[in-house]
Write a protein that binds this DNA or RNA. Structure first.
Lengths: 240, 240
DNA sequence: TGTACATCAGTGAACGCGCGTTCACTGATGTAC
DNA sequence: TGTACATCAGTGAACGCGCGTTCACTGATGTAC
């Protein structure tokens, strides 16, 4: 079927474009986001800085591509972990999602910083945000987790919400998959996002470890309390 | 009493040192953390870059001083807001703390990034962390808020905790003020910190506003649910 | 009140650095006849 | 199978930039007699 037939030249081009991103990610994971410089990448690849302009119009284009890649890999990871558990184990699925988020962040701290932290020095976010698509996927995924618990959720939403309160694209994703769900469930999903993000961000940026020896236990407590608040119990498939 | 008598020279010195920090903060709030450069500060003050070395040994020394100042101003703000409400209104105090954290961050987004985000490019954290003292104060403050609710808290801690699980300095601060409190309360305080930090960080870094129109409502819902989980009710003194 | 000296804040020029980006070019790879 | 031409990936040198940091110095402010 539509498998694109690439000429030798096109194949090499695509490979080089991919290698540039790969090298950029490696440099970033070694030296922090500052290390993403066209000159450093070129040096690492044994080419000239100017040559990169054959693949990316500008440094910001490259950074946007990196953000997209990294964010996608994060969302892939948490969704995969969620899907290991059956749909009738909503607590297990939330735990898996949350734990995988933290584990991914610990393995890819610079990636986490790239997505959620200060943009690379001098980086200007393009329109719509390089991360918008992946972020919508993540929110929709969390909404799905909340949906499974919605009928019995204790923590519900004090506030009133309307579909127009949310981004249309996100609303589209959610309503397509969960037609019955009220808008307040999306608000709750964002709160769940906040709970996971908060402790992980504090840990990655070094603010938790100076207060507590094992931030992972605090985080696990938080996830457990979350499933409690959602009124769902864990099945036997627990993760320590 | 111990009012230090400064000579004219010493007074001018202290004023200049303070002005350097003030200018640095203003530049940062206008142009992001990258804008903190000795040359830019000197330019702004009508002096030479080299002159700053008469006041700070190195750029990192200056940045550390800034982090300390900014973090202290944040903790001052939330503590002041908390103390407006009486001790017998623990829910109001938590709401005040949380709301003030968010409001401070919205007014000082670059300050928030400086404290919690990526360090300024090239910045190396000194031993103990420039922010350690303020962070301990913040944690101790949150523990105080949790302490007021501890007896009736629903969300307690699933896990077992020991005093040795936490930083000794933090433990000292807490046990001095709340001798009765078990170590698990500190773990809960850290979770509370995470809940507040999560949504505020997502909002400041622009991840929430692309999903929801009014992140403040989500945040307020989260704070309200927090007081519910702590088993404390709001008195009449609510803040919208 | 006046002079001689010490202190010290700030100057200005220089150092070496790495950066993003541009551009005329070379030389290998691919295509058409 | 061989030749003539087009494509195009990558070169290397240059541009102008702002940065942190050093250092010999100037000139005003303060101090001691």
């Amino acid at each position: 079927m539509g498998v694109p037939v690439l000429s030798r030249r096109e194949r090499l081009r695509a490979e080089t474009a991919a290698e540039i991103k790969a090298v950029a990610l490696r440099l970033m994971s070694e030296g922090g986001p500052d290390a993403i410089s066209l000159r450093a990448i070129a040096r690492e690849m044994g080419m000239t800085a100017g040559a990169i302009y054959g693949y990316y119009d500008t440094r910001d284009t490259l950074v946007s591509a990196l953000i997209k890649d990294v964010y996608t890999s994060l969302v892939d990871a948490v969704e995969t972990a969620r899907d290991v558990l059956p749909a009738d184990d909503p607590a297990g699925r939330i735990l898996a999602w949350g734990q995988t988020l933290r584990e991914w962040a610990l393995v890819n701290p610079e990636g986490f910083r790239l997505i959620y932290g200060d943009p690379v020095p001098g980086y200007q976010e393009p329109e719509g945000g390089a991360a918008a698509e992946a972020a919508h996927r993540a929110c929709a995924g969390l909404t799905g987790l909340v949906a499974a618990a919605w009928p019995q959720a204790v923590i519900r939403q004090p506030g009133e919400y309307d579909w127009t309160d949310f981004d249309p694209i996100l609303v589209g994703l959610v309503r397509e998959e969960f037609p019955e769900l009220p808008p307040a469930a999306v608000a709750l999903a964002l709160r769940v996002w906040g709970r996971m993000h908060g402790l992980v961000a504090l840990e990655i940026y070094g603010h938790l470890r100076s207060q507590v020896k094992d931030p992972g236990r605090i985080y696990l407590d938080e996830l457990r309390d979350l499933t409690r608040g959602l009124g769902i119990d864990e099945k036997s498939t627990t993760r320590a």
